[in-house]
């Protein structure tokens, strides 16, 4: 068994070492794979706030991932075509600046999470899962029919957006940027877990009626968690779209929401590094097994099955010997 703190440091060190090795070995595709893992981990770190701390099994988190992606796609496409965006009588210039795009992605995702949360948090259990799924499908079909931004075919961005002081087209530099954002999100998550808000949210997940009698409003706690969670997943969506320089309605798909849940469950629900370990394993299997057979999801399913049956704390729980929260 290994202490969770050491395991966390080990995972981050390994995640950093792989692209550095790939750089030395001149394997740029491995760096792109690592970047993909980092971005998926970031999206799952966002979902883990709602799922792990708040017990909210959201099957609609792809909404925020997609909104982040489309925030990037729309702003960058207007910048590359030199045409301003007309919105509610306002004229907005497009931009190729990542910080501006990130901020837009965070705000839009947070606002959407607030609206969706206000409605869906009135329900719980299977109804919450279904209502978040329904929102996901609404956004998915809206994106398909949104011909102004590519409809079903999606939207291509020719040049990756810029970040001050970095050449984001160099894979290792873009990896470094995404890795830094992931570390910040993990830091925020770690601070949240020990904060009065995090503890109250955890308590609200366990006994909602009881937290009310100690003066806490579980609905408000869960809504705030959902908004924070959506904002982080939205930021991941913007980074993902920039990685691929492509946005499409699949970013809103329920399969993606499901995959995010799967990678958290594999890594460890409510564990700080659960989403990171899950994302790394997911991307590794996708690349490695995907090269052998197109039915690689079968193996992922088998791993998920084993973990659910024999390791309720996910891989982190298995390695540290500690059970995770009972979601």
């Amino acid at each position: 068994m290994i202490g969770e703190r050491y395991l966390n440091l080990l995972v981050l060190a390994a995640l950093m070492a792989v692209p550095l090795w790939a750089l030395a070995a001149d394997e740029p595709f491995t760096i792109t794979l690592a970047t993909r893992a980092v971005i998926l981990a970031l999206a799952a770190v966002g979902l883990n706030i709602a799922l792990g701390m708040g017990g909210l099994v959201s099957l609609g988190h792809a909404v925020f991932f997609g909104l982040g992606g489309y925030a990037m796609g729309i702003l960058a496409s207007h910048a590359q075509s030199y045409t301003p965006l007309e919105l509610f009588g306002l004229t907005i210039e497009g931009t190729k600046s990542m910080p501006v795009i990130w901020l837009t992605a965070i705000i839009i995702s947070a606002l959407a999470a607030w609206g969706i949360g206000l409605l869906s948090l009135r329900t719980s259990g299977v109804y919450f899962i279904m209502i978040t799924l329904a929102f996901g499908q609404m956004f998915y079909y809206f994106a398909i029919s949104w011909s102004a931004y590519g409809g079903e075919d999606g939207l291509s961005i020719y040049v990756r957006n810029g970040f001050p002081g970095l050449n984001t087209l160099v894979p290792i530099e873009y990896f470094g940027l995404c890795f830094a954002v992931l570390c910040l999100a993990l830091l925020l998550n770690a601070r949240l877990q020990g904060s009065p808000f995090g503890l109250a949210l955890n308590a609200a997940r366990q006994v909602p009626a009881r937290v009310e009698t100690v003066g806490l409003d579980p609905m408000r706690l869960k809504l705030l968690a959902f908004v924070l969670s959506g904002a982080i997943t939205g930021l991941a969506g913007a980074l993902f779209a920039d990685l691929n320089r492509f946005v499409s309605p699949t970013m809103f798909s329920w399969q993606l929401s499901g995959e995010l849940i799967v990678l958290i469950v594999i890594g460890g629900v409510g564990r700080l590094m659960g989403p990171v370990i899950g994302a790394c394993l997911f991307v590794t299997l996708e690349h490695w097994l995907g090269g052998i057979t197109e039915f690689w999801h079968v193996f992922l399913g088998a791993i998920l099955l084993l973990i659910v049956l024999f390791a309720r704390g996910g891989i982190v729980g298995l390695l540290t010997g500690k059970e995770g929260p009972h979601v």
Binding site: P196, L199, N202, A203, V211, V214, G215, L216
Partner: peptide, 9 residues
């Protein structure tokens, strides 16, 4: 400790 701090006012 967390049980106590979660409800502290």
């Amino acid at each position: 400790r967390e049980n106590l701090l979660a409800t502290a006012r």
